[in-house]
Computed example of a mutant assay.
Amino acid sequence: MVLVCHKHKFIYLKTTKTAGTSTEKVLQPLCEKPGLGELENGKVRISKYGIVGARGPGRREPHPDWQFWRRHKYPWRNHMPAWEVKENLGAETFDEYTKIANVRDPFDRAVSQFHFMKYQQNLPSEDPKTEFEQFKSFILSGTWSIDWKIVSIDNILIVDRFIRKEHLVADLNGVFADFGLPENSFNLGHDKSMKERRKGIPVPEYYDSETIDTVRRNMAWVFDKLGYPDSPQH
């Protein structure tokens, strides 16, 4: 979901496979009246406190309001591109507020996205050799998300602050401290983990020179901005 907080003047832009759902659940209470329960999938809350966009149902959660993906009916939704958030919110507010987004080591993220794709499509886990072949086809297909539309407008990166998945608690504590809120005053869950499907196989084993080059090229904005290593790490 996209989040807007008027008190602390921030916009949360949700990227993919970067611990975004865990992060949005931490930030969501800052964007709405205290004490509200969980927001039903496909619903939006707009109030004097801010905006809590719709979260989409997962593969196992069919929902009659799945049409919220249509912009004209549900203008606030999961993984919105930055230009659309700006258009809906208004340029003055968008430009004034701090834009926050999650980020993750691109090599690790690509592996996670591969397994999440298989999970969504009800595809089984295979032996490692087959998985590696499928992963290579996935990466070279160009069908995986690089999140650029979520974090940029007119091909310019517009995010002011990144929360790194590898340093999630520390980076969230930094955000809370800047808002004048106590550190460690949030409960951090772990959603949509692909740990079981990954079977403990180290990230470098998925890659060869061709897939390394493809990820480096497609995710250049992350490597350039965040300084992640340019080869897969154990």
Rank of each mutant, 00 (worst) to 15 (best):
G174K: 04
W144K: 05
L157S: 01
D160T: 02
A177T: 06
E183Q: 15
H167W: 00
I156Q: 03
L157Y: 08
K136E: 14
Q134N: 13
D147Q: 12
R161I: 01
N173F: 08
N184Y: 05
I158T: 09
G174S: 05
F179E: 07
I156R: 04
D171L: 02
I153D: 13
G142P: 12
F138Q: 13
H167I: 01
L157R: 06
A177I: 00
K136N: 04
N173T: 09
S185K: 09
S141Q: 02
V159C: 12
I150M: 09
I156E: 02
L181P: 15
S137Q: 13
S145D: 15
K136Y: 05
K165E: 01
D171K: 03
I150D: 05
V151K: 06
L140G: 00
G174L: 04
E166K: 04
K165W: 03
F135P: 13
S152F: 05
K136I: 01
S185F: 11
F176K: 14
D171H: 06
I163W: 07
Q134M: 10
K136P: 01
S141V: 03
S141L: 02
H167C: 00
I146T: 15
F135D: 07
L157G: 02
F176C: 13
P182L: 09
I139K: 15
W144D: 10
I150R: 14
F176T: 14
G174V: 05
V151Y: 08
V169S: 07
F176D: 14
I163E: 04
A170H: 04
I156D: 00
V151P: 00
H167P: 01
F176M: 15
V151I: 14
D178C: 08
F138V: 10
I153M: 15
L172C: 10
S145F: 14
L172K: 09
R164M: 07
S185V: 10
I139L: 15
A177F: 03
N173K: 05
V159T: 12
F135L: 09
F176Y: 15
R161Q: 08
I150S: 08
I153P: 11
R164L: 06
L168M: 09
R164A: 04
L172F: 07
H167M: 00
L168S: 03
W144G: 05
W148D: 08
N173W: 08
P182Q: 05
N155D: 12
A177Y: 03
R161Y: 02
V169Y: 02
F162C: 02
